[in-house]
């Protein structure tokens, strides 16, 4: 029973990463119907940006004493989120928008996204070399004991951050004008410009939101597993996409729930089976969910006119 609780806590932490990344996927998908396969690599870029900023801030310059770890962390998070969203928006401007303007089939945009992801990974490898980076330890580890179950402050921080960012995103989407415009675009792409809504600005706003979530996920991931390498974003990105779809892609509640479902399944499988069975069992479960509910947990079946 204790191990179950312990595993559940680990699963919540692991699920938080998936949820944060899946939120980015689902935001972009909801507005553009584009599977942004470069998203996992944007997470990697976010982790690297966080690494450079944290290392730069931790350094001692002249006679000024070094900043304490929590100040560095408090500065790193917003700067990283801003810089990562710059990367995401640049990608949108350079690669996706021209294709969208030309009216290309959306699958060609998906292929472009895949290629952009490859460029990010291998460009990183080319620029920084194959040596792995060790993320600096910014906050002291505190372990809280609740009977036999132990929790670190980092774990609580990760879980709370993901829940908080979900709540904020949900507020943005349901309460603000920009959020209303985003929902409008996903409802009817052709009528929206006629209503005087600047569609390109809204798309850029969506990319800013999605990529800053990716940046946040990158920092949290780097804090929890402090070894960075250029290919770290691939498998977590693909899996977060799967989580977003299982939740019902285009719906942020679905992405949030899907991320936690995937995280919990993976950790529970590893807890009770050999770890090499992780992907096999967790994906079989997800396939079964999709077979029973073909539009995901929160997705609504759409009626199509002929």
């Amino acid at each position: 029973m204790d191990t179950l609780f312990q595993n559940l806590l680990n699963a919540l932490q692991w699920g938080s990463f998936y949820s944060l990344i899946a939120l980015g996927y689902t935001l972009v998908y909801g507005v553009l119907r584009l599977i942004n396969f470069a998203h996992g690599d944007i997470v990697m870029v976010g982790a690297y940006i966080a690494f450079f900023i944290a290392s730069a801030l931790l350094g001692v310059y002249g006679g000024i004493p070094a900043l304490p770890g929590w100040v560095v962390l408090a500065l790193t998070i917003p700067i990283t989120m801003v810089l990562t969203s710059v990367v995401g928006v640049t990608l949108e401007r350079i690669a996706y928008r021209p294709l969208r303007r030309k009216g290309a089939n959306r699958l060609y945009v998906v292929i472009t996204a895949l290629m952009a992801g490859l460029i990010l990974e291998n460009g990183n490898l080319l620029l920084l070399g194959a040596s792995r980076k060790k993320f600096p330890e910014l906050i002291d580890k505190v372990v809280y004991q609740f009977g036999p179950v132990s929790v670190t402050n980092l774990k609580i921080g990760v879980i709370l951050t993901s829940i908080l960012s979900f709540v904020i995103l949900h507020m943005i989407i349901t309460r603000t004008k920009a959020g209303m415009a985003m929902r409008a675009i996903s409802y009817d792409k052709f009528a929206v410009p006629l209503m005087g809504i600047p569609i390109d600005q809204i798309i850029v706003f969506t990319f800013i939101l999605g990529s800053s979530m990716a940046g946040l996920a990158g920092i949290l991931f780097a804090l929890s597993y402090p070894i960075l390498d250029p290919y770290m974003g691939i498998s977590i990105g693909w899996k977060a996409f799967i989580a977003a779809v299982v939740g019902g892609i285009g719906d942020i509640r679905g992405a949030f729930a899907g991320g936690f479902i995937l995280g919990i399944t993976e950790i529970m499988v590893v807890a009770f089976f050999p770890s090499s069975y992780r992907d096999l069992i967790s994906f079989t479960i997800l396939l079964l969910i999709l077979t029973v509910k073909p539009t995901g947990l929160f997705g609504m079946p759409k009626t199509t006119k002929i």
Binding site: F241, S276, F283, T284, L290
Partner: peptide, 26 residues
């Protein structure tokens, strides 16, 4: 699964199938 699921949901099934096959072999 393709009988009932459409476009992007089907894409996910194919990705999951790829993962399942690879891990089975491993």
């Amino acid at each position: 699964p393709s009988f009932r699921t459409r476009d992007d949901y089907l894409a996910i099934i194919t990705i999951a199938a790829n993962y399942i096959i690879i891990t089975t072999i491993i």
